[in-house]
């Protein structure tokens, strides 16, 4: 099981089961895991791309801004949106509630779709 899948599976477990010790913290933990899945897959994508140096860039925003050109516009839009939503959800903001299971489920499905899309674009896989 590759990196992205293992994170998504872990997120699914948090979404569907009671994990001891995760009471109350599972929504944000889940958001973290889903975001990790996305970031892991992005790194894989850049590594296999014509410009592996982009994957080394620390600015995630820059990576995402470059995605329309080196992947495609629709995948870039979905990835950017999911990443921003997950980033906000995975941080504790004052006066902002944790994401709901429904939202997390939706974001998880978005990320899974982006992962699949990125793999389809990569020359060496699938």
């Amino acid at each position: 099981m590759s990196g992205a899948e293992s994170y998504l599976t872990a997120a699914d477990k948090l979404l569907t089961q009671l994990v001891p010790g995760a009471r109350g913290t599972w929504p944000r933990a889940c958001a973290w895991l889903i975001r990790l899945a996305l970031e892991t897959e992005l790194a894989v994508f850049w590594a296999k791309s014509r410009h592996p140096e982009i994957g080394a860039c620390r600015s995630r925003r820059a990576q995402l801004l470059l995605l329309p050109r080196y992947a495609n516009r629709e995948l870039a839009r979905r990835a950017t949106h999911a990443w921003a939503a997950l980033s906000r959800a995975s941080h504790h903001h004052s006066y902002e509630l944790a994401p709901t299971a429904t939202e997390l489920r939706h974001l998880r499905d978005e990320v899974a779709a982006v992962v699949t899309g990125l793999r389809r674009l990569s020359p060496t896989t699938g």
Partner: peptide
């Protein structure tokens, strides 16, 4: 934002 990202070629 992208123009300032100097750690990218």
């Amino acid at each position: 934002a992208l123009a300032k990202t100097h750690d990218l070629p």
